[in-house]
Computed example of a mutant assay.
Amino acid sequence: MALRIALSGFVVLVVAMGIGRFAFTPQVPLMITAGQLTLTSAGLVAAMNYLGYLVGAWDAMRAHRFVEGRLYLGVSGAVAITL
């Protein structure tokens, strides 16, 4: 059971990181050039991204109950934000 949860989390992280790194990151300079983002707002977006990683890691470290539910909630949230 724990191995299945760990592998599921690994796959989800690979997909989410792949989408973030290879789809969204190259668009930031274009958005800055187009005036949709400033350097400050791009920095804030990056900081919120890393804060999300920190909160997710902290939550995963402290999870003792409802682990599968948290995983499903996290995957659903990542899909919703990506869409």
Rank of each mutant, 00 (worst) to 15 (best):
M17V: 13
A34C: 03
Q27D: 13
M61F: 10
A2R: 14
S76I: 12
L7E: 00
M17G: 11
S41M: 09
V67T: 07
A23N: 08
A80F: 14
A16V: 14
L3R: 11
T33W: 11
R4W: 04
T38F: 01
L39M: 13
F66E: 08
T40E: 13
I5K: 06
R65D: 11
R65S: 12
G52Q: 09
T40M: 13
V75Y: 03
N49M: 14
G35M: 05
T82G: 06
R65F: 05
M17P: 05
H64L: 10
F10N: 06
G56Q: 08
M31F: 13
L83M: 02
G77P: 05
H64R: 15
M1W: 01
S76R: 12
L83T: 02
L7P: 02
A63S: 11
V75T: 13
A42F: 04
A23S: 13
M48K: 04
L13K: 05
L7C: 08
A63D: 00
N49W: 08
G74R: 09
D59C: 06
Q27C: 12
S8W: 00
A6Y: 04
G69R: 10
L83Y: 02
N49S: 13
F24M: 10
R4K: 07
R65H: 12
M61S: 01
G74C: 11
T25P: 03
A60N: 03
L13A: 15
P26M: 02
N49R: 11
F22Q: 12
Y72M: 14
A23T: 11
A34P: 02
L13E: 09
V67Y: 01
F24T: 04
Y53I: 05
L54N: 02
T38K: 07
I32R: 08
G43A: 14
A46N: 11
W58T: 13
R62E: 07
A78E: 02
M61T: 03
V11P: 04
V11E: 00
Y50K: 07
A60L: 03
F24K: 02
T38D: 08
G35H: 04
G9S: 06
L13H: 12
A6G: 01
W58P: 06
R21T: 14
L71W: 01
F24L: 15
R65Y: 06
L71T: 06
W58D: 09
E68S: 14
L13T: 14
P29Y: 03
A34S: 04
V45A: 15
P29D: 07
G20P: 07
L37M: 10
G20L: 06
L7W: 07
Y50G: 09
Y53D: 04
G35D: 04
M17W: 09
A23D: 07
M1N: 01
G20K: 09
Y50C: 11
Y53E: 06
R62K: 15
I19P: 00
L44Y: 09
L83D: 03
L54I: 12
F22Y: 15
G43P: 07
M31N: 04
G69M: 10
V79S: 00
Q36I: 10
A23L: 14
V45L: 15
I19V: 11
L13V: 12
M31Q: 12
I81D: 04
Q27W: 10
Y72D: 07
I32D: 05
A78S: 07
M31A: 15
A34K: 06
S8A: 15
H64P: 06
V79D: 05
A23W: 09
